[in-house]
């Protein structure tokens, strides 16, 4: 159970808006770590800070013992952080296979000269990318879509392609931003099986999700954010029985109690 990703008092402000404030957490290898919270709690911002799209205003992000808070997005990806986006960011006009091949970018090192003269590196890399892409597609159950344009696929499959593309780069931690958003029940269940299967193969996963059933059944640790602050962290059972979390989700007072009761049923 070695530590993969750790944040120390991470803050991110947009002018006066404190989107993320003083969040510290730790993801160990083999975890499925969930981040939940009401809308606008700063989950995606926190994700973006971890993957380098935003720089933290204060605090540190430490990945495998290396401080990555000041690195560029590309460098962080190269260090081994793979991620997907809340709105799918596929290469819509490329086939699924090509999408995944670009995911192999990091594993290969063909330079311009190699490409021009078809050196040994080039041949090895092409063979590697092809093999890796096909293997990843098989793992994600996407073989039958290999030659379809990514933009033509149904939404649920697109999400899966995005995950597969990220997997092709062999990330040490896979960050999924609302993977089940916009999916129906069946698709969500299929996704959960997929995530659990990945985890059983040793993939560390950090995910944001609104779907409580998904999070509670799938994750082994959960952190709750509200208004940019961390209000709770622990196992699913602990989190779901936490008073503060219930208040954050359902509000307080009589109405809140009613809502909580309703949610339990």
């Amino acid at each position: 159970m070695s530590e993969i990703l750790r944040t120390e008092g991470v803050c991110r402000y947009f002018g006066g808006l404190k989107a993320v404030e003083d969040v510290s957490m730790q993801v160990n290898s083999g975890d499925i770590f969930g981040i939940i919270g009401p809308n606008g709690a700063g989950k995606t911002t926190f994700f973006n800070v971890c993957s380098g799209i935003y720089k933290p205003t204060k605090g540190k992000v430490i990945f495998c013992g290396q401080d990555i808070s000041d690195l560029s997005q590309e460098s962080i990806s190269r260090a081994g952080v793979g991620r997907t986006f809340q709105t799918t960011q596929l290469f819509q006009f490329m086939s699924v296979l090509e999408n995944v091949k670009i995911g192999c970018h990091m594993g290969t090192k063909t330079k311009l000269v190699d490409a021009i003269f078809h050196t040994k590196t080039y041949k090895e890399d092409e063979a590697f990318a092809e093999e890796k892409a096909v293997e990843t597609l098989r793992k994600a159950g996407l073989e039958q879509y290999a030659n379809t344009l990514a933009g033509n696929l149904p939404y649920g499959i697109q999400r899966r392609v995005e995950i597969a593309r990220s997997l092709a780069s062999d990330p040490k931690i896979l960050m999924l931003d609302e993977p089940a958003a916009g999916m129906n029940r069946l698709e969500t269940d299929a996704l959960r099986d997929f995530v659990e299967e990945l985890n059983s193969q040793g993939q560390t996963i950090l995910l944001i999700e609104h779907d409580m059933k998904f999070v509670m059944n799938c994750c082994n640790r959960i952190m709750v954010l509200n208004f940019g602050k961390k209000i709770c962290e622990g196992s699913p059972d602990y989190v779901s029985n936490n008073k503060e979390v219930q208040t954050a989700y359902f509000g307080s007072g009589t109405f809140g109690k009613e809502a909580a009761k309703y949610a339990e049923n």
């Binding site: 993957s51 799209i53 997005q73 590309e74 990806s77 190269r78 793979g82 991620r83 986006f85 960011q89 596929l90 290469f91 819509q92 006009f93 490329m94 090509e98 091949k101 670009i102 995911g103 970018h105 990091m106 290969t108 090192k109 063909t110 330079k111 311009l112 190699d114 490409a115 021009i116 078809h118 080039y122 890399d125 092409e126 990318a129 593309r165 990220s166 780069s169």
Partner: peptide, 26 residues
Amino acid sequence: RVINSRVGRSWMSIRENELAAKSLGV
């Protein structure tokens, strides 16, 4: 030759979606 290699693919990935390309370490 360049276009049909890793280099060309990275160029095209930037054209199609720069954010995604960055997240894949291009």
